[in-house]
Design a protein around this nucleic acid. Structure first.
Lengths: 348, 348
DNA sequence: AGCGGTACAGCAAGCGCTTTCTATACGAGG
DNA sequence: CCTCGTATAGAAAGCGCTTGCTGTACCGCT
């Protein structure tokens, strides 16, 4: 029924071993033989059996990319960059690899299950993107899994995620804390003293770091934070909308809203506008990430640009063993403050 | 080194066959034995070898999802919906499947290569999303590939993509033509007579269908189209920005810009605004897709909502054999016109 | 002419699992 | 008490490929 290596070998009048070597191309094969084999492959329309070769060679060409939310461009951009370096089809790399994107939906169990699935497939590498859960048992479980994966020869890279202690995973992190601090400093510099903060989900490293940066800036400026000024939500627009309304309810005198990310910031803008407030005349708004649509908002969003594509590309190269891991296995990329129209001097 | 089925069997004092049966759970195994095996699996931290079982069973639990651009929420939303139904970890489905998202970047070769890779992995199902290339040789090559996949038992589903002739792929298409027509009719109804159109890349079914709908509406209203009014570009914001500038240069008197999709529309808005034109007082703008950010634009975007998530979910279920394919293997979903702030009555 | 070396090609032993077929044990029916 | 059906476990034959090792020419050299 299906064509096998043996069929090709028979047709080319060589042994299966030779066909395998032609296909893998790491062993000397005479040009004439190679040609005969290739011709047979073509005529028979032969397709290698992936599982069989993975089994025999004890390696596979699968590379897993874990993302929290595939519908969120934040992850899409990173995934795209990673994938382009993985080589996949069309990539610069030689051996074709199947880069697979797995959507965890931010759920710890799914994250773990995907890691197991990847381990089961004997993946060549795994890249985990985005913030990690701060739940201790889960973090430990993930760390254990990552250790197992490394042991089995799977390269593990964290992209936009803090280092995982007790593993030999390479981490390319973002300086979320520094970015958050800089952003809030900018607002304080403009004269803002009452700033609302819409944080992401709790138990997320990204959430915590950005919030810490924000608070550090407030503290440095001698501003005492009012607990009413912080609201937690999800990393989406809807959440930003609702949280802003809540913020306005709690303290209508705030002059700035700092959002967990750009999507949230957009939701915040919508809520402010519907509440009859002008941006930035009445309230300034700031986001985080600088996704492509942020510059198109009206007014365009003041935010912190994260080198998503660069980090992804680097993560991909490291995962492929095409670039040396950074010294100490950890590298931190800084964000860049993008001051745009949504932030201004507060009314006095 | 690595734990195998045999190790588990030894530890549980049973034969490898029994362990396999416990793990696959389709053969009667005494409760006491099962428990013993499960305990051994747990103690040894055993993980099934995917390739080996795929080889032996001649099936795999991989499901491929092909997308044109993973960084584009249009695909992200569909992929997310598909994946949630595939079962993956956490899904409602029983057997765990690895849903993998492959990013073709809109390149025909990559599309083909990914299909081969998936074929090589003996994927259980493949879902192709988004518009197809209209390049004849390529379309034929893809159709041939899809036929091969079907023959090999891989279920093939097209989501948001026109049917592939001569294959038994199930197609869930969007009525891009009808949506385009309705959108333009709306603008004409408002009084517009000179409408610019920013189309997507040529040789893309989506592009062609939307454009055809637009033209059908013009024709029906007796408006003769000026060739200067159509500009082709990519499906991204940047392209919309540039195309709009070009449109304005060619004919500064247009009163409406219809974009290939929402991202393009946003770019168009930016260009118009920078050109000192108000939306919709001076120029109306319309998009397509109704992505989440479209409602947040200022003014919010008039567009055509496509049931991305619904179609994706259905495609996922069909791919899993959990839902009957539509009669005739083809179903078409209509878009819904969303009239919002970006379209209005033209100046007279 | 005889020798070692090089360049290929083939043999055969698995890789770790699934599954068909066969064996065993037990309770029920005659 | 013997036979038979039922329930459960094991033996063993692959699945299709890779790869270490073993030939076998053929070349250049002394």
């Amino acid at each position: 029924m299906t064509v096998t290596l043996a069929d090709v070998a028979a047709r080319a009048q060589v042994s299966p071993a030779t066909v395998s070597r032609v296909l893998n191309g790491n062993y000397p094969v005479a040009a004439s033989t190679r040609e005969r084999v290739l011709k047979a492959v073509d005529e028979l329309d032969y397709v290698l059996n992936g599982p069989a070769s993975a089994l025999a060679a004890a390696t596979s060409d699968l590379v897993g990319i874990l993302v929290n939310d595939i519908a969120d461009p934040f992850f899409g951009i990173m995934a795209s960059a990673i994938q382009s370096e993985i080589g996949g089809p069309g990539g610069r790399a030689g051996g074709e690899r199947l880069a697979v994107v797995c959507n965890t939906g931010g759920s710890p169990e799914r994250e773990l299950t995907y890691l197991t699935l990847l381990q089961r497939q004997r993946a060549a590498a795994v890249v985990l993107t985005g913030g990690a859960m701060e739940n201790a048992p889960h973090a430990a479980a993930v760390a254990a899994k990552l250790r197992k994966l490394s042991e089995a020869g799977t390269r593990v890279v964290l992209c936009g995620r803090p280092p995982a202690p007790d593993t030999d995973a390479v981490a390319l992190t973002f300086d979320n804390r520094g970015g958050g601090k800089e952003l809030t400093e900018h607002l304080i510099g403009l004269g803002h003293r009452r700033l609302g903060y819409i944080a992401g989900p709790e138990e997320r490293t990204t959430t915590r770091h950005r919030l810490e940066g924000h608070r550090a800036a407030l503290a440095a400026a001698g501003i005492e934070e009012d607990p009413r000024w912080t609201v937690h939500g999800r990393y989406d627009r809807r959440s930003g909308y609702e949280a802003t309304l809540e913020l306005l309810r709690r303290d209508p005198t705030i002059t700035a809203v700092v959002a967990a990310n750009d999507s949230v910031a957009l939701g915040a803008c919508a809520a402010l506008r519907e509440s009859g407030l002008r941006i930035p005349e009445d309230v300034s708004v700031a986001g985080f990430d600088d996704l492509p649509f942020s510059i198109d908002a009206v007014p365009s969003l003041t935010t912190v640009r994260l080198p998503l594509a660069e980090a992804g590309a680097r993560a991909g190269r490291i995962a492929m063993g095409r670039e040396e891991p950074p010294p100490g296995r950890v590298a931190t990329a800084r964000g860049e403050l993008m001051v745009r129209g949504s932030s201004g001097v507060p009314r006095t």
